[in-house]
Design a protein around this nucleic acid. Structure first.
Lengths: 215, 215
DNA sequence: GAATGGTTTAACCAACTGGTTAACACAAAA
DNA sequence: TTTTGTGTTAACCAGTTGGTTAAACCATTC
């Protein structure tokens, strides 16, 4: 491969992130995340992507198709990451610490995603089933086994593993999803609220482990 | 007041619950709760109320006005109830038990409200500020004092009272808001999921108190 | 340099949306 | 009985929406 070819390859690779299709997807993501399926306008997405509205239909045929592309990608990415975090090979209590810290971090870096997914599922609960069926995602099972075994080993107090999992996830997600309410009620500005959630990385795992650990 | 008048008064009172305005409000509530502001159609609300679409505008002038009537009523009712629950005169740990049990009960009986409020605030965060400013709602302050005093009395472990409040509310609300996801992931049917949340009335307060109580 | 085929555009369209209007119904007041 | 004001309706309207189309563009192939 001579210099010229190398150059061309590099150029191609650079442009991969800027194909029309990817531009549409990233613009659509930004609009859908903020306005939701019903609130988003195809024209607005086209403007955001800096292209003609007809292009959206050329690449994705319909608004519903474009939306599903975003929604499914977000869901798969989000649940895959969750699955990855709970699959790390650590003893239960350390795993909980690891999970909480990294999950809150993930949430802070993708703060629109949880509310977006929750909203859209609330308006159309069938969607989530499609994602799980088509994409074959089954988070949780591994974690349930870890909890059962920690209970029988006398490491933690008996608890329904499903209740514990819900508790862990609730404590991580809620402050992100309810951010506008909580920060208003507790008089936080944007920056101090982010710090407040940051501090939950330690606080939440302390709170959970205090509750379940046998001394 | 003779018999005839008494009869008329009774009739009036009965019809109070069935005035056109109330019919509109209850129909609009059902539609907005399920479809949200952007997804709801004025025609659909009119059909649901069994009246002409022009009546909606006769009574509420615009979709936004009608929506705000519902949204504000829901918010005020919801936060007022929350405030009532945390204002009961009990020692902290008993208060937490009392709160969790009654709050989860409230959530189960109004299962659309939390997701509805969260969704609409996510699409328009300004809304919540209007509610708090106009209606003068300030939940939480009383509870924060209770927590501080329980810490200094050595009843519970030191914890940022705001963190504890968020934890309590998160543990109650999340399973209701994320119901479609959780019940799909954990393979619940509708009935068993309701029972699962019912059982959290005891589980959650146990979980919290285990975590903070000094033995 | 003509033909090819994927990409892009401006103009267009039918259906829908929130909102208006003018006429009508009807009970209470005059 | 007439008047008046509130409640109600069907028909209508202008603006918006998702979606289409036919022509133009442009790099590649022959």
């Amino acid at each position: 491969m001579d210099d010229e070819n190398i150059e061309k390859e590099a150029e191609k690779k650079e442009n991969l992130d800027k194909t029309t299709e990817k531009q549409i997807l990233s613009a659509a993501k930004r609009i859908f995340h903020v306005k939701g399926l019903d609130g988003a306008r195809m024209q607005e997405i086209a403007d955001e992507a800096g292209i003609n509205k007809a292009m959206l239909h050329y690449y994705f045929r319909s608004k519903e198709n474009l939306f599903e592309a975003i929604f499914n990608e977000d869901c798969v990415g989000f649940f895959a990451k969750l699955q990855e975090l709970i699959s790390v090979d650590l003893p239960l209590l350390a795993k909980i610490e690891y999970f909480v810290e990294n999950y809150i971090d993930l949430l802070l870096k993708n703060s629109y995603i949880p509310a977006f997914i929750l909203n859209e599922i609330h308006h159309n609960p069938e969607r989530i089933k499609n994602v799980f069926i088509e994409k074959g995602i089954h988070p949780g099972n591994r974690f349930i086994e870890d909890i059962r075994s920690a209970i029988s080993l006398g490491i933690i107090n008996p608890i329904d593993p499903r209740q514990l999992i819900i508790n862990i996830i609730a404590l991580c997600i809620f402050p992100v999803v309810a951010r506008p309410i909580v920060s208003t009620v507790l008089n936080f500005d944007d920056d101090s609220y982010t710090k407040f959630i940051e501090s939950r990385k330690k606080e939440v795992s302390k709170f959970i482990i205090n509750s379940i650990k046998i001394n």
